[in-house]
């Protein structure tokens, strides 16, 4: 079959049809994948929440509320975990921009009496093999089950109680800072 000639009408018509078919097909795929994408995002959030609060029977994501963290900072998201209508813990999504490569996002689980239950790293860009060790139990467990009013959430270099990760003081500092921010903000408005 001979190739079509490149007249103006031909070219415009071809491009029009090609893009039309392409965008229709994409719209269809988008509709198909919309739900799984939402579900995947929700599952990721829930996974982090589940790891840091006691077992609950409500829907923390649906009951999320925001608390202002202070001057120049974004407000933090609070995910209350309830059992039988009573708050048994709150997952606080805290962050800091002082990581070695900028943003570090944590999910900090705080119990009603103010102790930290556990912490999950949600997002970070730290150096693989060094800063990433903040996800390891050896470092993270220093924050587990502690009362933040008794422990100074700073690395030892800065006069605190936290052993920094070897060769990753900046990442350790960022982790401590984000945790401190979560604790401070929780005091301001976590008991809603």
């Amino acid at each position: 079959m001979a190739k079509k000639e490149s007249t103006f009408i031909n070219m415009v018509a071809t491009l029009f049809i090609v893009t039309l078919v392409a965008s229709t097909a994409l719209a269809y795929v988008y509709e198909l994948t919309k739900e799984p994408i939402e579900a995947a995002k929700l599952a990721k959030k829930l996974q982090a929440i589940d790891a840091v609060v006691p077992e609950y029977d409500n829907q923390p994501v649906a009951e999320m509320f925001k608390v202002a963290a202070g001057e120049g900072l974004d407000s933090l998201e609070f995910y209350p975990a309830k059992k039988g209508g009573e708050v048994i813990g709150t997952a606080v999504r805290s962050y800091t921009n002082t990581g070695y490569n900028g943003l570090v996002v944590l999910m900090v689980g705080v119990l009603p009496d103010g102790t930290i239950k556990d912490i999950q790293v949600v997002e970070h860009k730290e150096t693989p093999g060094l800063g990433t060790k903040m996800e390891s139990p050896k470092f993270k467990d220093q924050f587990k089950d502690i009362d933040p009013s008794q422990v100074v959430l700073k690395v030892k270099k800065d006069g605190g109680d936290i052993d920094a990760i070897t060769a990753a003081t900046i990442s350790s500092r960022a982790f401590s800072e984000a945790t401190q921010l979560a604790v401070d903000t929780y005091k301001k408005g976590g008991d809603k």
């Binding site: 079509k4 000639e5 031909n10 071809t14 090609v18 893009t19």
Partner: peptide, 16 residues
């Protein structure tokens, strides 16, 4: 390929 005029070949392929 046979329905695409020569001059808009590349843009059409890019869309695909």
């Amino acid at each position: 390929k046979n329905f695409i005029p020569e001059k808009v070949r590349i843009p059409s392929f890019i869309v695909v």
